[in-house]
Computed example of a mutant assay.
Amino acid sequence: MNPTVHELDVATLRDWPLPVPADDEDKEARGRALVIAGCPETPGAAILAGHAALRAGVGKLTLVTVASVAPGIALAVPEARVIAMPDDMAAWPRSASMAKLIELAGRAQGVLIGPGMSEGDATLDVVEMLLPHCRKAGVVLDAAAMAVVMRHAVAQPVLLTPHAGEMAHLTGLSKSALRQAPDAAARAAAARWGAVVALKGARTLIATPEGEAWAHQGGNIGLAVSGSGDTVSGLIAGLLARGASLVQAAAWSVFLHASAGDQLARRWGLLGYLAREIPDEVPGLMAQFMPPSDAAH
């Protein structure tokens, strides 16, 4: 018999409401998100992920990126504190700013590492250096950062967000094998890596190391656009900062992302809406999907 897979729908989300700060609390109560993202070739990933974290409701956002693009990112996301690191990631451990980055990792409730970052050992070395310092945080590893599991299983709870191509690279499975048994592949990877795995696609499966799973079928082909995955990861980081668990943040973000795509398709058409437009749909959708008493806050 196949293990139970919980289907994600509006009823599921309303029975699983997100943490909501009280009306008299300040931005600290909405949490701190740390997003480490971008490189000279793909600076927009940091902007997309940071904007999504803000639309998810985080109180304080810090973006960490490479020095050559940091000023532009700071202007594009004026709500964020922006930390500039060397363009050469191999120099990060020796940088004067590394101590500041470690301190920020220790204070954040939601940490996202990877969108738009350069692939290679230098990035993975930074991931391994930072993970032990993320003491209070739910951690999302995306894009290049996910390859740390090819070195060894992670020693703390993290969430990985691969699409099929990334999953094939991380596991050594062919895309055809993944298409035939995506649920089994996600469950096996979660157990082997000791991580929550959100295998993204038209049907997204979220699997835990303990064998639990949640699935969502929906969205549309318009979401298959550059930068779309960065917005999902940013939403997750923002919800983690607000106090959601790894699985809850992933489930809500996957559903919100797909629902935002449906709204944008109705407005603009199935093809041609932009990844940068996805997060702007999220606050209204969160209010719509939350139980009425919680949404009223």
Results as ranks from 00 to 15, higher is better:
L13A: 12
L13G: 10
L13H: 05
L13V: 09
L13S: 10
L13C: 07
R14I: 03
R14D: 08
R14M: 10
W16V: 14
W16A: 11
W16M: 09
P17G: 11
P17Y: 08
P17F: 08
L18Q: 10
L18R: 12
L18V: 10
P19F: 04
P19S: 03
P19H: 09
P19E: 03
V20M: 10
V20R: 03
V20F: 01
V20I: 14
V20K: 01
P21L: 00
P21F: 00
P21G: 00
A22C: 12
A22P: 08
A22M: 10
A22T: 13
D23C: 11
D23V: 13
D23K: 09
D23L: 11
D23R: 09
D23N: 12
D24Q: 12
D24G: 13
D24S: 14
D26C: 07
D26M: 01
D26Q: 07
D26N: 12
K27D: 02
K27Q: 06
K27C: 01
E28L: 15
E28K: 15
E28I: 14
E28R: 15
A29W: 04
A29E: 06
A29S: 12
R30P: 04
R30G: 00
R30F: 01
G31D: 09
G31P: 02
R32V: 14
L34D: 01
L34P: 09
L34K: 04
V35L: 11
V35M: 00
V35H: 03
I36W: 00
I36A: 08
A37D: 09
A37E: 10
A37W: 15
G38T: 08
C39S: 15
C39G: 02
P40M: 05
P40Y: 02
E41R: 13
E41C: 03
E41G: 11
T42G: 08
T42V: 14
T42Q: 13
